[in-house]
Design a protein around this nucleic acid. Structure first.
Lengths: 212, 212
DNA sequence: TGTACATCAGTGAACGCGCGTTCACTGATGTAC
DNA sequence: TGTACATCAGTGAACGCGCGTTCACTGATGTAC
């Protein structure tokens, strides 16, 4: 816990029109706090302000309330995840390989950013109406590129055409999410090498949709 | 919110040795509160006491602290789930049918008791060292009976023997958990008929491990 | 270049709240005689 | 059966805490002249 009067000198006032600098610092601090405490409930306006080195009322110059701040922290994570997933499948033509790459990138993100993933996908962020409809979720968690890979795979004859591609995509997502959310929620289980487990579980799920 | 002085008359003192009556009422109230609020953080000692119609210090006659109370609430849920799963697969010889029955019962429990499932499997219950090791988890979430069904299935030649049965079991659990935890965490997605979705996702997962 | 003034980013103190927990206590129940 | 006493389940008041948010304010920055 670092106080405004502590090690760092008092922050210089933002110049006119530089308001976004503090705004970004607040978001960074909230994100860091979320990461360290592992719980959105612990990301209090006071803790965030103290970390930035600023009084807590000054958050209200940049966000209408705590819920909006937390919402935006999550939003930045979703943007990051979407970019990661898009990058992961870029240039991979084979639908099976592409699906595997997407799944691995998704799981990697979750394992590397467990507290963010928890907040995005597992928690009720208290006071935040963080309810997205299917279209938003589809874009944000990479559902669209999963779906596209599945459709391509069915067309190429490598995936079964017995099932609705939407359902196949969804089941794939369930596997990936189930795996990483268990690893995050129940670390005491002791999962061994995460990468090996990810590969094995995704591989098995992909086998389930192969054409036969 | 019902106060001690409210509608119900002041609760009669427990007789000597009847201390468990209030203890059970406290657990029931905490469980009900968890269900209604959907968040373990909201299950405060004061709210529980007020619901029972008792002063909050009296909780401390039955539980050393709030964390122990919450822990026991969760423990009762795990016991209930284990019993449900055992009942679900009773008398089903075919390993595939048995596995499907276990998975469906597991998902049903989660859908019917979303807040309890959330607390048991998705949340960090604040202040509760609710860390179980693999052996406990295996027993409590029905992992052992899943594993047995998989082993039986491999022996009977209906499941692939390419994979470690432990891994097959785990991937199955990932699917089921992933499905229900998404349904619980992101209700705004709009999942349609839950039973149909459960059947489809589990069926697809089972297809992934069929011998070919 | 110098001065008076306007702007507005950030502050310090305070609000009312609910929390977990402690403590000395009360008074109904049970028991010994 | 009646009485004095011991037990102990449950209480009321209080503790110190951190919270989200408000409000009147300060004082550095920028601007008009």
């Amino acid at each position: 816990m670092r106080s405004a009067a502590g090690a760092r000198r008092p922050r210089p006032r933002a110049r006119r029109g530089e308001g976004d600098r503090l705004r970004d610092e607040i978001l960074d601090a909230a994100e860091a706090l979320l990461l360290e405490t592992g719980s959105a409930d612990k990301v209090s306006t006071r803790a965030v302000a103290s970390r930035v080195g600023v009084s807590s009322p000054s958050l209200y110059l940049h966000f209408p309330d705590r819920a909006s701040l937390l919402f935006e922290v999550c939003q930045r994570q979703f943007d990051k995840l979407a970019a990661l997933l898009a990058a992961a499948c870029e240039g991979i033509d084979d639908p099976v390989d592409r699906l595997r790459a997407i799944g691995e990138a998704y799981c990697r993100f979750a394992i590397d950013n467990p507290q963010q993933y928890r907040t995005m996908m597992m928690d009720v962020v208290s006071g935040v109406a963080y309810e997205k409809d299917l279209d938003e979720i589809r874009a944000e968690v990479g559902f669209d590129i999963v779906y596209q890979a599945v459709v391509d795979g069915i067309e190429a004859g490598v995936f079964t055409s017995d099932q609705d591609p939407l359902l196949i995509s969804f089941a794939f997502w369930c596997s990936a999410h189930g795996l990483v959310s268990l690893m995050i929620a129940k670390p005491s289980i002791g999962f061994g090498d995460p990468d090996a487990l990810i590969e094995a579980v995704l591989g098995q799920t992909l086998d389930g949709v192969r054409a036969r």
